[in-house]
């Protein structure tokens, strides 16, 4: 126990605030303030849309933690988001569990899948594009299973009637069915997730992930069990993605196979890449902006959005390898 405490103190000791971090923190505070005031002006429809985007931002943060810090790209990350959503839906509608139980079920299943797959792949030395593609295959197959296993998953239609989260604490009652309350709930959780991840990764723990990501062999000879560190990060990211998915299921009220699938996996990569890998605030804001844009574009034409996504990938690879944040930085340096 004492040893665990020592370990935590070593891993998560907070250094002083650097100049670049100060800019990020200012952007984060400003964004939070604007979003907190939004319900005063936004319509119910836009409020609900922004709330969904905030939950998707938690999902994006989970990928950013993994991809931005350890350089492990998961191309099928929606697999875990979808497992969280289906866990919540199956627990509440089929098993009659409370939403808290559904949350735990989704997270537990997603973390177990990640731990099992990660054990086999990461300990075998599977990395980089190999790992990325295998996770993509997993998400593809999970979509097929969700579509064909009708008795449990509801098939192509999915599951309807997932109840909103309701609980009382300290004499206050929270009802996820209320638009404004659920918006503030999502806003709070998204920024809390960002804060926790940012604090963890600016501490020495983040240095370890960076070391493993950039030069794994060297890190190994310094005494790090790199496969185990990657496995922990992968499992944690999966659990966080499932957390976001389970919340998303309660606010949307429905789950369907596309929550596990390629398009969502693709979009989350875009959100992170555009926001700037490893910056946390970047992917969070990018999720809100790009999700809003995608809703607008999809309402015009359904095939236009995937076409644009494809073009965005090429744009990022060739023009903006560090996302929009790099534009900010370049201007500052100029």
């Amino acid at each position: 126990m004492a040893r665990l405490l020592v370990a935590c103190r070593l891993l998560f000791a907070q250094p002083g605030l650097g100049g670049r971090e100060r800019v990020g923190a200012q952007i984060a505070v400003a964004a939070f303030a604007v979003l907190a005031l939004y319900p005063a002006v936004g319509s119910d429809y836009h409020l609900a849309q922004l709330r969904d985007a905030l939950l998707l931002a938690i999902f994006a943060l989970s990928l950013d933690y993994l991809w931005g810090r350890t350089r492990m790209l998961v191309m099928g990350h929606a697999l875990f988001f979808g497992i969280g959503a289906y866990g919540m839906a199956i627990a509440t509608t089929r098993l009659g569990w409370p939403t808290g139980g559904g949350l735990l079920l989704g997270i537990a299943v997603a973390a177990s899948v990640a731990a099992a797959v990660g054990y086999f792949l990461l300990y075998a030395g599977v990395r980089l594009h190999f790992f990325a593609v295998l996770t993509m295959a997993m998400s593809l197959i999970a979509t097929q299973i969700a579509a064909s296993w009708s008795s449990v998953t509801g098939g192509d239609v999915g599951i309807l009637g997932v109840p909103p989260i309701e609980f009382s604490a300290f004499g206050l009652h929270y009802s996820g069915g209320d638009g404004t309350a659920s918006y503030y709930g999502a806003l709070f959780l998204a920024f809390l997730t960002m804060l926790v991840l940012w604090l963890a990764c600016r501490a020495p723990y983040g240095l370890i992930l960076e070391a493993i990501g950039s030069n794994e062999n060297r890190a190994r000879t310094l005494g790090f069990n790199t496969a185990r560190q990657l496995l922990i990060a992968f499992t944690a990211a999966a659990a966080l993605a499932a957390f976001a998915g389970a919340l998303f299921a309660t606010t949307a009220g429905v789950v369907a196979p596309d929550l596990l699938g390629t398009l969502l996996s693709t979009e989350v990569m875009i959100w992170v890449a555009i926001g700037g890998r490893g910056t946390f605030i970047g992917p969070l804001l990018a999720t809100l902006l790009v999700h809003e844009a995608s809703q607008t574009i999809s309402s015009l034409s359904t095939s236009l959005w995937p076409l644009l996504l494809g073009a965005l990938f090429l744009l990022i690879v060739f023009a903006l390898p560090d996302g929009l944040v790099s534009l900010l930085r370049r201007r500052k340096e100029a």
């Binding site: 960076e210 062999n217 790090f224």
Partner: peptide, 24 residues
């Protein structure tokens, strides 16, 4: 064989952690 994107101080701070965590 060093870590290209880490400062000298950060490299050193990180380098000691693996063994320190193991030995306590």
């Amino acid at each position: 064989n060093v870590f290209p994107w880490m400062t000298v101080t950060d490299s050193l701070r990180m380098a000691g952690l693996g063994v320190a965590l193991h030995s306590g």
